[in-house]
């Protein structure tokens, strides 16, 4: 009994340490930024362009990730095939890659001197130094966050539900759309929030692959880095806005997830 209570103390202390460490830098951003600074920083062209570009490119990346990632995750969750472990590992690899490695890899693949560089050029597709390049970089780093979560959400769906749908005459595509997606919705939304957050925060791969230019490729994190040296208060204020946007996103998706999860249970 005594051993158990002292372990509780250890756990509580550890949680307190984790919380303090993770929250302190975020609190410090707001402690140093008055509401007036926030408004001022949003008044600058650089900040507004960067935030708008960040929202635009991350939304585009999320649309691509969800559209392509959802069926791919469903396949991984519901079928067995040779080499599946290898495929899953390959998809998860960008999760643990340093952003600089992602940037180098994207250049080596899609850069002007890259493997597919001349093919892209022949097709008239320009990525480097273009907004499209930002979307490619964000998609690359953020996709695994969504696919991983969606895969485990689909795997947790009761196979009997899908069988029942098919027995009742639903095609596989219909069972996927009408049964699997509603049942896995909560997990998919959680993955979407993580992927979106990662995309909003992307820095290294974007800088290396797409470059940094106002309105075209300079996303909010790049603008923060660019203003850090010359105008620290402005960089802080822009950081505060990014924290607020990311937190709002996480919160919204959590709330949405809770209601859709309940919905799923009612259906089940």
């Amino acid at each position: 009994m005594r051993g158990r209570s002292s372990f509780t103390v250890v756990m509580v202390a550890a949680l307190a340490a984790v919380l303090a460490f993770l929250v302190l830098p975020i609190v410090a951003i707001f402690a140093d930024t008055g509401p007036g600074d926030l408004v001022d920083s949003l008044g600058s062209d650089v900040a507004r362009d960067a935030l708008w570009l960040s929202l635009k490119t991350s939304s585009m990346a999320i649309v691509v990730i969800v559209a392509v990632g959802t069926p791919a995750a469903y396949l991984l969750a519901t079928r067995e095939f040779r080499g599946k472990a290898l495929v899953t590992t390959a998809i998860e690899l960008p999760l643990v890659l340093p952003p600089a490695v992602a940037g180098i890899g994207l250049l080596a693949a899609f850069g002007p001197n890259g493997v597919f560089g001349s093919a892209l050029e022949g097709a008239g597709i320009e990525l480097v130094l273009q907004t499209a390049g930002v979307v490619v970089a964000l998609t690359f780093v953020a996709a695994p966050f969504y696919i991983r979560q969606a895969q485990s959400a689909f795997a947790a769906v009761d196979p009997n539900l899908l069988d029942a749908a098919r027995t009742l005459g639903a095609s596989e595509a219909r069972a996927f759309a009408r049964v699997a997606i509603p049942a896995a919705g909560g997990g998919m939304l959680a993955g979407l929030a993580l992927a979106w957050g990662r995309a909003l925060g992307e820095f290294g791969a974007t800088l290396m692959f797409a470059g940094s230019f106002q309105e075209i490729t300079q996303t909010a994190p790049l603008a923060i880095f660019a203003t850090f040296a010359t105008d620290f208060p402005a960089a802080l204020a822009l950081s505060a806005v990014l924290v607020a946007v990311s937190a709002a996103l996480l919160l919204a998706v959590k709330l949405l997830g809770r209601s859709s999860l309940l919905g799923g249970e009612v259906h089940g």
């Binding site: 250049l107 850069g111 002007p112 001197n113 560089g117 480097v128 130094l129 800088l207 290396m208 470059g211 940094s212 230019f213 106002q214 075209i216 490729t217 300079q218 880095f225 660019a226």
Partner: peptide, 19 residues
Amino acid sequence: VGSEEPDVAGIIGKLSQGA
């Protein structure tokens, strides 16, 4: 100007990659 880089290493990188 297609990219404003944080240091010379960034500029050299963009040049040597043909960006």
